[in-house]
């Protein structure tokens, strides 16, 4: 019997992690992507790249932390650029009660005083009196991480065919893994887009080792160092499916946050303004759904890099159980229903 073949549609973080997970389990995989180059038109390109399950725990369902925690090792084993420096959460004096509340709603952190903050991030010395330090968290540069996954796939002989638009039902393979993100709405009617906007700046004056979140009454604001003086500032979360450029209001809020974190950002250059739509199911948690020989893996919402490894692992489990129906594999992973 010929070796079963699997086609993964979509080369964003969901598609590439699924493909790699399948290839690592010895399966024959091919990836097709409608864009001509890696990252083009994929919302993974705009991601923050924080692997911060316990920060997320403060504002999301427990599943996000539970599924997200193992992803730090997953990335560290496959992408050497994964920085395990922890992450920092600060608040402006007027929002300090929110910091206490944030702390109450999560775990795996230490309180830092002004000296502690100065020790970890010297540039923030004297700027904040208290902070939360999440020692075990990590971050990565999503664009470099996607490129590293593509390279690993290539090393394993997996071909990524760019510029190919393929509908899952037309793909000729034993199993089709549909990782098209928002483009999969034709098959997943309850999928919606949630707009996110980000800014990239280059600042020679400010240096940070780890992502810093600043509590804000309206946005989950964060600044992620990307090396070489580059910083990504994200991200808005708007229940809108408008594509198109960043609004002035959003840009002001994001840039203001950077400036409030460190006035040195006032001199930074704006390198990029980006906006895209995150694919989300109604409970904002990822899901794997089967229809015939197609598995739809989708709904990573704003947790693409954090949750993709677990989504990939579970997708690979599901693929294996479809290929070997005689062995008693588990059904699709159970997911709490809203």
């Amino acid at each position: 019997m010929a070796k079963p073949t699997i086609i993964v549609i979509g080369a964003g973080v969901a598609g590439l992690t699924c493909a790699l997970e399948l290839a690592e389990r010895g399966l024959s995989v091919e990836v097709v992507e409608r864009a001509r180059t890696l990252g083009e038109g994929s919302c993974s390109w705009m991601a923050g790249g924080m692997l911060a399950p316990w920060c997320e725990r403060a504002t999301t369902e427990p599943e996000v932390a539970e599924w997200g925690a193992p992803s730090i090792d997953w990335w560290a084993e496959r992408f050497p650029g994964t920085a395990r420096q922890g992450s920092l959460v600060v608040a402006q004096p007027r929002d300090l009660p929110d910091l206490t509340r944030f702390a109450q709603r999560t775990e795996h952190f230490d309180w830092l005083d002004a000296d502690g903050i100065a020790k970890f991030e010297p540039d923030l010395a004297g700027r904040f009196r208290r902070a939360l330090f999440f020692r075990d968290e990590a971050h990565l540069d999503p664009r470099r991480a996607l490129a590293a996954l593509a390279e690993r796939l290539q090393d394993r002989g997996v071909v990524i065919r760019f510029g190919v638009e393929l509908a899952p039902q037309d793909a000729r393979a034993d199993v089709v893994v549909d990782c098209r993100g928002l483009a999969a709405r034709d098959a997943l009617p309850d999928l919606r887009g949630v707009r996110g906007e980000m800014v990239m700046v280059r600042s020679p004056d400010v240096s940070l080792q780890r992502p810093v979140r600043m509590l804000h009454p309206r946005l989950p604001l964060y600044i992620v160092p990307r090396g070489n003086g580059l910083f990504m500032i994200g991200a808005t979360m708007i229940e809108s499916e408008r594509r198109g450029p960043v609004s002035v209001r959003s840009a002001v809020e994001l840039l203001n946050a950077a400036y409030a974190l460190h006035p040195g950002f006032g001199e930074a250059e704006i390198v990029e303004l980006g906006a895209d739509l995150r694919p989300a199911f109604p409970d904002n948690l990822p899901d794997i759904r089967r229809s015939g020989h197609v598995l739809h893996a989708n709904g990573l919402f704003r947790h693409g890099f954090l949750l993709a490894p677990t989504l990939a692992r579970r997708t690979a489990d599901a693929v294996l159980s479809m290929l070997q129906p005689e062995t008693n594999h588990a059904d699709l992973p159970q997911r709490r229903r809203a």
Binding site: G193, R195, I238, E239, S240, E241, R242, S247, P282
Partner: peptide
């Protein structure tokens, strides 16, 4: 305003 941006972009959420 917050959710819509301009036009009918917030439609998914509004339909919901």
């Amino acid at each position: 305003r917050r959710e819509g941006g301009t036009g009918r972009a917030g439609q998914s959420f509004w339909q919901f």
